[in-house]
Design a protein around this nucleic acid. Structure first.
Lengths: 232, 232
DNA sequence: GAGTGGTCTAGACCACAAT
DNA sequence: TTGTGGTCTAGACCACTCC
């Protein structure tokens, strides 16, 4: 009967009226006192429902002014799923494999933000033995000294890092580039073919751990982002 | 002194210990009862702090088992900011303008999911009078009949829609493409130059409203996504 | 069975902003 | 001034699930 908590029922009722267009952006929602009376519950229960809606950006609450339905964002944000390559490949029902193309250890440049020494790796990721992603990666040996002894032919760098150095902060940059000669050769494309580049930087406790540039053939790959203000 | 609510101070304290690595993934956090004693407050206050952390994915809570620090996601998601072009341009301190290059009204194709008739628009967006984005857009005249009479030379289609048909659901697709001849001409690029394509579909209450394909010069544009499990 | 989180109550005081 | 949300209390009962 009563599985759904009351605060979620209240939030859901309001959400439905917003989604259906019955309550348009700018519409002033009943006050907590009114909703408390309507549902016959304590004010804190209504308050929790409204706080949840507010946290999800569906409504805007201001003291004295009351609660109004939010306007859809001009600068909208959407959750984009940043794929782990291996799980991405396997999720498509293909066999994942990888080849380590290059590995050197060298001093880090100051602008790399990765400490004193880095290991520099080039990896080709394959799906059913066909090239899928060309990856260049730097790993900070200050942050992850164990990386110097790791066998990156057995485990790709991304997987190794996930297991050994979980990050606490990440930044991704998505851009379009033409494949340079080396990348084009690795992926079997024409020089200059449009590719999606995903750059990823991660930190652990403020210290730079790794930088990676992953290049996907443009024709074969999409990032999809969904945003639904009414569905979290 | 006491501006910060107690529940946020509690959440912040815990967050800091997770971010610093003091409490690693899997670590079992003190129970609500223990935290209640530690902070000398009511249990609901602690509960709210922990619920917030849980909603943000920093911790996982299970009855009887207690609350543990969450493992970082394998398949991570990040919030990517999807720009409104005008605000993007103005945010860079440049002057925004636009030119309507084409406009026709025609029957919709079934696979477009936009009702019976659509208006098809081609718009060039400029920053300081230099081409910045080439946009192709379809607007459903079933969902937005007023669009047929709108003056899209005065207001760009995106801005008009935001004002007249706020969406409730959106999907974005990010990919890399080579500029076709028309796009290249519009943006002043060589044919086939790598570009970032942002496709956007929006719905209002389940009904398709618009589809847009916005093409950014690859060299001039990045989408940035940040993810920080410790900072929301 | 007992420890844990999930929800809810019926109050209270305070901060803020519109009037 | 006063209406509104923001926070907090000190309890309570319940639902899980591990032991």
């Amino acid at each position: 009967m009563d599985q759904e908590p009351l605060h979620r029922r209240i939030a859901g009722d309001i959400e439905r009226r917003i989604a259906s267009g019955e309550w348009r952006p700018g519409f002033r929602i009943p006050t907590e006192a009114e909703l408390t009376a309507e549902y016959g519950c304590a004010r804190m229960t209504v308050s929790r429902a409204m706080s949840d809606l507010s946290a999800r950006g569906l409504v805007v609450r201001r003291r004295r002014a009351g609660t109004v339905v939010a306007h859809p964002p001009v600068h909208s944000s959407a959750l984009v799923s940043i794929p782990g390559i291996q799980s991405e490949v396997e999720g498509r029902g293909l066999a994942y494999s990888h080849r380590l193309l290059g590995r050197i250890v060298r001093p880090a440049r100051a602008d790399e933000g990765l400490g004193e020494r880095v290991i520099e790796l080039e990896t080709l990721h394959l799906a059913d033995d066909l090239p899928f992603v060309f990856e260049r990666r730097l790993i900070s040996l200050s942050a992850a000294p164990e990386a110097e002894a790791a066998d990156f032919t057995a485990q790709p760098p991304g997987g190794w890092l996930l297991a050994h150095m979980p990050w606490t902060e990440a930044e991704h940059r998505i851009s379009a580039v033409g494949a340079d000669h080396e990348t084009a050769a690795g992926l079997g494309l024409a020089d200059g073919a449009p590719c999606l580049r995903l750059e990823r930087r991660t930190w652990r406790d403020g210290q730079g751990v790794t930088w990676a540039s992953q290049i996907f053939p443009g024709a074969a790959y999409d990032l999809v982002a969904r945003f639904s203000p009414t569905k979290g």
